[in-house]
């Protein structure tokens, strides 16, 4: 493999990780921006998406069944959590939110072990995207290109919805100042709920999409949670631009860090997080001026 194509592959790896992180963090960040709610269980929802995706694919024999089922089931789970628990924790302060959702992580991990066992399980890629593709002389797994494309598509749709539609304007108003938005006649509660559902669905989608690449195991949510939180905090809580910037920053720092500085790679993202928190606590692209 030529030098050029090696770096091209690494870039694609970075892109693919960034897109997964984006799918996970965009929900988390907008939920935080709107609801001021810190949901540590977001990673567990991602894992749930992976498991549902695998089970649905195995049951039907089609990857796409899992692809469709995961976001729906995870969103439904999210609705249950929201109505049963998170709604009443809305004004309970960050510590209680962190703790309740930490408790949820514990519960979820054991549910995964109960239902799907302790051992990692995998699934196959969809027939449409198996094998490898060649692009300008670079050979890369087709399925991973699909992940990159899917992430870019979601990114574009969200950007359009947020900037061009009435709903998007209401969400932005809510992030900016929820009381003011409520005064202006925006049904803030309804929007919170909708955003929460979409955030959960995207986490589920990310899980289903990641399953063929990483295979599902009970701790997968806990493992990716920290990276996701870093994306959210570094980017700036509550903003789409922040989620995009944070995802790329963390995704590429992790990918190239592992290649270039294997020993300090994992240190890199924590140092990044610490630096941002200490010197620019609102993140790089804060939602509020």
């Amino acid at each position: 493999m030529s030098d050029w194509s090696y770096w091209a592959v690494q870039t694609l790896n970075g892109l693919q990780l960034s897109m997964l992180l984006f799918l996970l963090s965009v929900g988390l960040t907008v939920i935080f921006g709107l609801l001021h709610f810190v949901n540590l269980a977001h990673g567990a929802l991602y894992a749930l998406g992976a498991y549902i995706g695998i089970s649905a694919a195995t049951a039907t024999g089609s990857y796409w069944a899992g692809f469709a089922a995961a976001p729906v089931v995870v969103a439904l789970t999210g609705i249950l959590l929201y109505l049963g628990l998170m709604k009443r924790m809305r004004r309970a302060g960050p510590m209680n939110q962190v703790l309740v959702t930490l408790g949820l992580i514990f519960v979820f991990v054991d549910i995964f072990r109960l239902v799907w066992g302790d051992i990692a399980i995998g699934t196959v890629e969809p027939a449409l995207f198996t094998g490898r593709s060649e692009l300008f002389g670079v050979v890369y797994p087709t399925y991973r290109l699909f992940i990159i494309g899917l992430g870019a598509l979601v990114m574009a749709v969200l950007a359009l919805v947020l900037s061009r539609t009435q709903l998007g304007a209401m969400i932005r108003a809510g992030v900016d100042n929820d009381q003011m938005a409520a005064c202006l006649g925006v049904n803030v509660e309804k929007i919170f709920f909708l955003v929460f559902c979409v955030g959960c669905a995207l986490a589920g989608l990310a899980g289903a999409v990641a399953a063929p690449v990483f295979s599902a195991h009970p701790d997968m949510g806990t493992e990716i949670l920290i990276s996701t939180l870093i994306v959210v905090v570094v980017g700036g809580m509550g903003s789409l631009r922040g989620a995009i910037a944070g995802s790329f920053l963390v995704g590429f720092a992790q990918t190239f860090g592992t290649v270039l500085l294997p020993h300090v790679a994992s240190l890199l993202i924590y140092a990044l997080l610490a630096l941002v928190l200490v010197f620019r606590p609102t993140g790089l692209f804060p939602a509020r001026a």
């Binding site: 309970a92 703790l99 309740v100 930490l102 408790g103 949820l104 514990f106 519960v107 991990v109 549910i111």
Partner: peptide, 12 residues
């Protein structure tokens, strides 16, 4: 863990 998590949630 399922017990621990539930106990914590109930406590809060």
């Amino acid at each position: 863990h399922i017990v621990a998590g539930t106990v914590l949630i109930i406590t809060i």
